[in-house]
Simulated scan of single mutants.
Amino acid sequence: MGKRKKESAKKLKEARKKVSFAVLRNNPTSPRKMRLVADMVRGMEVMRALDVLKYNSREASGKVEKLLRSAIANWEQKNEGETPEESGLYIKEIKVDEGRMLKRLRPAPQGRAHRIRKRSNHVTLVLGSTTDNNING
């Protein structure tokens, strides 16, 4: 590995240590349904987002709420002695990617078959702090 590439890799590694995030993989919900919930809380303050997710009737909101609690726990582990309310913690980035797709066959009339696609998704949630100015997103 070249010197320049090694230095940039070190910078990325150090920047990643400062960021708190949580990842949910192979969630058996279609990405479209999950994106509706993700768009609802993107950019929100953490405590307000927890309230919104708690009282939302969608099934995906329960999974995003659990993921958000995990990201908060990761943040608290890095920043001991601070609370999310004091530091102005918010959802900096939340993205929903397509996961693997299970392909099944359903019988159809006259000896035919229709393909059923059971979709899944991956959710990545990154937290940011309004008091922490040295992280560039």
Rank of each mutant, 00 (worst) to 15 (best):
A22S: 06
L36P: 01
S30H: 06
E45W: 08
Y90P: 06
L50R: 09
Q110H: 13
V96H: 03
P28L: 03
R104S: 03
V52E: 11
K95Q: 11
E45K: 10
G137Q: 03
R32S: 07
L12M: 08
N27W: 07
N27E: 08
N27M: 15
R35E: 04
K66D: 10
N26E: 13
K3I: 11
S61K: 00
K95R: 14
L50G: 05
D132H: 09
I91G: 01
E59A: 13
E82H: 11
E82P: 02
N136F: 02
S70T: 08
K18R: 15
M40E: 08
S61Y: 00
V19D: 00
A22Y: 02
N27G: 14
V52N: 04
D39R: 07
S30I: 03
N74P: 01
K63W: 07
N133P: 14
K17E: 12
A49F: 01
L53R: 07
R104H: 07
S120G: 05
K33S: 13
L36G: 05
M1F: 00
L102E: 15
T130V: 14
R106V: 14
L89A: 09
A38P: 01
T83K: 15
N133V: 10
N74D: 03
K54S: 05
G137E: 10
N121L: 04
K11H: 08
R100A: 11
D97L: 01
L89D: 06
A15Q: 05
A22G: 02
R100G: 10
T29D: 06
E7M: 09
L50H: 09
K33P: 02
E7Q: 08
S120F: 01
A49K: 00
V37S: 08
N136S: 15
T124H: 03
G88D: 06
R42K: 11
L127F: 05
G99V: 12
G43M: 06
I72Q: 08
K3M: 11
H114Y: 14
A113Q: 10
S57K: 15
R117A: 14
K6D: 08
S129M: 11
Q77I: 14
K118G: 04
K11Q: 13
V19R: 06
E82Y: 11
R58P: 04
K78Q: 13
R119P: 02
R58L: 14
E80C: 00
P31I: 14
L12N: 08
G43A: 09
G81P: 01
L105W: 14
R106M: 14
M101F: 09
E93Y: 04
R16W: 06
V37F: 05
K66T: 07
E85K: 14
S20Y: 05
A9L: 14
L50W: 03
A49W: 00
A38I: 03
L12T: 02
E98N: 12
D132T: 05
L68K: 09
S57Y: 12
D132F: 08
L102S: 15
Q110D: 11
